[in-house]
């Protein structure tokens, strides 16, 4: 259980998350939605223990996240930042294998048992993200979508209990968006907690099991997608008149006033 109580996060003096309280359950795919600058990324990074907390607390089970030693925390929480920015032109396989770093205690050649565990985890992460064919491709030669998949593969290779990802669906084409959402759901199905910042409200509506809507640092809606992303909430938070079309699980968001129906 990953929880926040009265969480306040400040960035260069500005409050970006204001007394947020929430309890996240493992096994659930949760989406965090909100307009630009609402504090989505800050909330996610604070939950991952990557931002200093101004007040309140973030806890993993009964432990304060801030008090968990860095390496141990890294094994429990896998974090995918928004920019998949890779400094060196490493191969996809090398990139994915970086996800195993929290499991390494000393540099150099690891012991055989941990080597085997490493290569198994890397192989299954590559398989989950369909990266096998790209294994030896340098990252500079990947398309945006392939880069996003490789970055997610890196997170999966760490076999964390929690996956916290900042807009993993951005840059992905429709079919890979679908595939990545499905694999995130699969990871949640394995009992992992999956928390994803999503910009695309339809993707959140169709794929998430729970949606948290945040506006100006405040959590304004939290619940099943149909409730948390209701027309009223979207109109109030994004200030765009709209309505949902289609059936549950395959909804599309149509802009424009509700009475514009033809």
């Amino acid at each position: 259980m990953l929880s926040a109580r009265d969480l306040v996060v400040k960035r260069s003096g500005r409050t970006v998350v204001e007394s947020a309280s929430l309890v996240l359950e493992p096994g659930v795919l949760t989406a965090i939605c909100g307009p630009n600058g609402a504090g989505k990324s800050s909330l996610l990074a604070a939950l991952a223990g990557l931002l200093p907390i101004a007040s309140g607390e973030v806890a993993l089970g009964d432990r304060q996240v801030a008090a968990i030693p860095a390496r141990e925390k890294a094994r429990m929480i896998g974090f995918l930042p928004q920019q998949a920015d890779v400094a060196w032109d490493i191969s996809v396989e090398t990139l994915v294998a970086l996800g195993r770093l929290p499991w390494r205690s000393v540099p150099g050649r690891p012991a055989r048992a941990s080597r085997e565990a490493d290569s198994k985890a890397v192989a299954s992460a590559m398989a989950a993200m369909e990266l096998e064919a790209l294994a030896h491709r340098p990252v500079s030669q990947l398309s945006g979508g392939e880069k996003a998949r490789a970055a997610m593969g890196r997170v999966l290779a760490g076999e964390p209990d929690w996956i916290l990802a900042d807009e993993p669906l951005a840059n992905l084409d429709l079919s890979h968006q679908q595939a990545l959402s499905a694999s995130l759901k699969r990871e949640a199905g394995k009992g992992r907690g999956v928390v994803v910042v999503m910009h695309d409200l339809a993707a959140a509506m169709n794929h998430a099991e729970r949606v948290i809507v945040i506006e100006n640092g405040h959590i304004v809606a939290d619940g099943a997608p149909e409730q948390a992303l209701s027309r009223e909430v979207i109109e109030a938070v994004w200030q765009v008149p709209c309505r949902w079309l289609g059936k549950a699980g395959a909804r599309a968001l149509a802009m424009g006033p509700a009475d514009a129906e033809t």
Partner: peptide
């Protein structure tokens, strides 16, 4: 040489490196 693995993690940026421990 002992900083090697940390430098590897930095390949992914500062925030990702911190998230890797």
């Amino acid at each position: 040489w002992f900083t090697g693995p940390s430098l590897d993690a930095l390949t992914l940026g500062e925030q990702a490196a911190v998230s890797l421990g």
